[in-house]
Amino acid sequence: MQQEVMFAGFGGQGILSAGKILAQTAMNEGLEVAWVPSYGPEMRGGTAYCTVVISDRAIGSPIIKNPLHLVAMNRPSLEKFAPDVKKNGIILVNSSLVAIGSGRDDVDEVRISATDIARDIGDARVANIVALAALVGRSRIVGTEDLINTVKAEFARKEKYIPLNLAAVDAGFAAAS
């Protein structure tokens, strides 16, 4: 079976790294993965998105027009990509920054105030991890313990950030349940 998650938001919101942590977790679970970024001239502040493809067999096309799930961290992302999400998929909306809904009634729309939750934990920059954990908690696309282990490994060289990011993971799981 193949599942795809699209992460989208402003450049600087940690979109690409949230996708990378998910891909790394799935790879650690022995699955096939591909992480496909958007790349363009904008380095900061522009739109950023990436798609993570997770499969139990070799991945054919890594270019996904219709992802199973979407994590929309800002309004333009939701407006742009919500119509593409597959039926019965999850649309996770960062309600801190997005007031509107997806307008879809055939998906599981989950609204999480990721930026506010992250700020309450101590740093708005971990909103991406809150959103990622919420998606994982809701979809079980990878195991929650495996996600925690990846986050620990990801920040192994910047140890002081581990507690903050683990708190973000917990808050994301809690928000999604």
Binding site: M27, V33, A34, W35, V36, P37, P62, I63
Partner: peptide, 10 residues
Amino acid sequence: DGLIGQMMEP
């Protein structure tokens, strides 16, 4: 192509 360069895979 650009995708091979930019994509992450195991």
